[in-house]
Design a binder for these strands. Structure first.
Lengths: 217, 217
DNA sequence: GTCTATAACGGGATAGAC
DNA sequence: GTCTATCCCGTTATAGAC
């Protein structure tokens, strides 16, 4: 992944990714990164300025493409559907697919990134939460709007809460990608479609449930 | 919570709880704890031996009662049901209630503990995962068995996976207890029953779904 | 852009007096 | 059981040569 001939900046990012994913932000020292990336300590400060700035750079590189994919997927879906209303299943699949694809497409690194993403949602550092939040903003708004159109009888506040539960499941599964592999020791499926369908099948009934237990109704 | 007259050992635990919850293990220094607990640095080593051992003590104090409650709740449920099979809703409620009660009964500290628990599931440190795993063992086995009896047509492997998703949602909600408060700015409900019913209503359909998308079937 | 050297500080752990 | 003092090491960050 990070061969010695890579530019210094890339080597640092490539080393920081699994380190942050595995040990968290506070648990990762810059010196550990210098050893792993075979880079000088000062180089990190030259290229990124500070440890926090490095974290931001790492996170941006991971999160941005996933969320871009999510928006593109929703665009495609809405264009294909025309006047027809989207189903909950379609919306959930479009939202979940980019994250699952990460794992399928990138192999070991994908699993590392997924772990990073899963961890980020509960990271202590306010910085991490701020970055993810900021990157996530438009995605949340667009998908929530899509869900509201698909489920006009469920109060928006309740839908918001259910959407957060969806994120919770995804986060948890990503934090330890072994959760995604098929149970009972079946071989890991090379396509993420089966995982995606399984996740959607689990989540869609709850997301689309009638609004019986809504406290604010 | 930790008044200056408390025994030293308790003051340390009470200070460590919110600190670990907020900043994580690596992000919390023993020196910060000494300031908060108004305790000498050496006292921590005298009472606990090491930082890791302190973490273990803190975790034990939190997790043990919750899991005891979960087992007791399942016992009660099965005793009352007699020969009748338990419903998915009953099982999920028994599993989820102790964690939600934590927040209701303990106020601010409850929210701190919940955050700690939520975080623990994705904590970097292998130690944390080992402790939680070890404490959780019997709970997982008993509840999974109950689910298998309630849903004999769903393959056990699939049920196991769905149960992990339940834990994922709970973990995520606990990690930031503001997720649990009613949406739309409604006042926080003093009883956790409404939250519990909402969670069960969201999860039960997915847990009990027919086994259509099971990869191993 | 990359290095060496070092500043300035905080970390966990321990010895030993009381 | 609780304190002070200290060890020894690692931390981020920076200055300045090349």
């Amino acid at each position: 992944m990070a061969v010695p001939t890579d530019p210094t900046r890339k080597r640092i990012l490539d080393a920081a990714e699994p380190a942050f994913a595995e040990h968290g932000f506070a648990g990762t020292s810059l010196r550990a990164l210098t050893r792993q990336a075979r880079v000088n300590l000062a180089a990190i400060h030259y290229h990124f300025g500070s440890k926090e700035a490095l974290l931001r750079a790492v996170l941006d590189r991971i999160v941005a493409p996933v969320n871009r994919e999510r928006l593109a997927g929703l665009d495609r879906l809405e264009a294909e559907a025309g006047d027809r209303a989207l189903t909950v299943e379609e919306i959930l699949a479009a939202f979940l697919r980019p994250a699952l694809d990460l794992i399928r497409d990138l192999g070991e690194r994908g699993r590392i990134l997924a772990r990073f993403l899963g961890r980020s949602a509960t990271e202590p550092t306010e910085l991490v939460q701020a970055i993810v939040h900021e990157q996530f903003g438009e995605v949340g708004i667009r998908y929530l709007a899509a869900l509201e159109r698909a489920l006009p009888t469920v109060p928006p506040g309740e839908l918001f809460w259910r959407f957060k539960c969806v994120i919770g499941v995804l986060t948890f599964l990503l934090a330890d990608p072994t959760h995604l592999t098929s149970p009972l020791g079946a071989e890991r499926s090379q396509d993420s479609d089966v995982e995606l369908r399984r996740l959607v099948a689990f989540l869609a009934p709850g997301v689309g449930a009638p609004a019986t237990f809504c406290p604010q109704s």
